[in-house]
């Protein structure tokens, strides 16, 4: 699998590696997918990178590759900003080859990472018709998670027709941030758009939402999909290629 802009792949890994330290990559002719849960099984990430999004892509037989995302992140940090990236696994090999090329083809770096044997549980996530679908700038969402974490461990997300409200409370007191739906969309990337069938009010652990925001550099916009008594879906699109979707179980009153 070859990417002209290897930085896309580095951003994907950076977006996942805090939530899941290691994961099984499923490779087929259609592309690369991954599904993994965090160690407490409260959050899940689902990654899709379609073959047509790569500069070139070939997969002669389906493979499951157990990879340490922490190690891969370290290797990818050695990559130059404009480097291209090729990922290769040879038949019957116990390692993955990560090759980087500088833009003017004067530097070539190769790394081999040992593959791991991982037990992975795969959950079936049905297509869900969510009550609310919110789109907002991903930088804004990151900022809100950071700001709400000052006040508490949990953030309550409430939607109305007018907008969406995030609030948190704790020992210090409480705080809230309300975003109003953008009425005059000039730049789509900066818009806050709320599609609502029913109002929702759901509480989530802000620590996990903050981890999801590590994937924010992938996309200028984030999508949040919510329904009562259903895990939140937080989506960052990978341009022309696929997406990273995070799922998080809501907090409930005991």
């Amino acid at each position: 699998a070859r990417l002209l802009h290897g930085s896309i792949f580095a951003k994907v890994i950076e977006g996942l590696r805090e939530l899941v330290n290691e994961a099984t990559w499923e490779c087929s002719g259609n592309g690369i997918t991954l599904q993994a849960m965090d160690s407490s099984h409260v959050a899940l990430v689902s990654l899709v990178m379609r073959s047509e999004g790569f500069e070139s892509y070939r997969c002669d037989r389906n493979m499951s590759l157990g990879i340490s995302l922490v190690s891969m992140s370290k290797v990818l940090k050695t990559m130059g900003k404009d480097d291209s990236l090729t990922i290769r696994v040879n038949d019957d090999s116990d390692s993955i080859i990560i090759a980087m090329e500088s833009q003017n083809q004067d530097k070539f770096a190769d790394y081999e990472l040992r593959l791991m044997d991982l037990d992975s549980e795969h959950l079936g996530i049905p297509d869900t018709d969510y009550s609310c679908a919110i789109k907002m700038p991903s930088s804004e969402f990151s900022r809100i998670c950071r700001d709400m974490s000052i006040m508490g461990d949990s953030v309550l997300i409430c939607t109305t027709k007018e907008g969406v409200k995030f609030s948190a409370k704790g020992d210090l007191g409480q705080g809230s941030i309300r975003l109003v739906q953008t009425t005059n969309i000039e730049k789509e990337e900066e818009a806050v758009i709320i599609e609502m069938k029913e109002a929702v009010a759901l509480t989530f652990a802000v620590r996990y939402l903050s981890m999801f925001c590590k994937a924010a550099p992938l996309s200028p916009q984030v999508g949040l999909s919510l329904s009562e008594d259903t895990p939140l879906m937080c989506e960052f699109k990978i341009a022309e290629m696929g997406h990273v979707r995070f799922y998080l179980a809501p907090k409930i009153e005991d």
Binding site: H41, P126, A249
Partner: peptide, 14 residues
Amino acid sequence: KRHQNQLRLYYSSD
């Protein structure tokens, strides 16, 4: 007290 659910309550294993 707030309790965090596991995803298995919502989604089943494939």
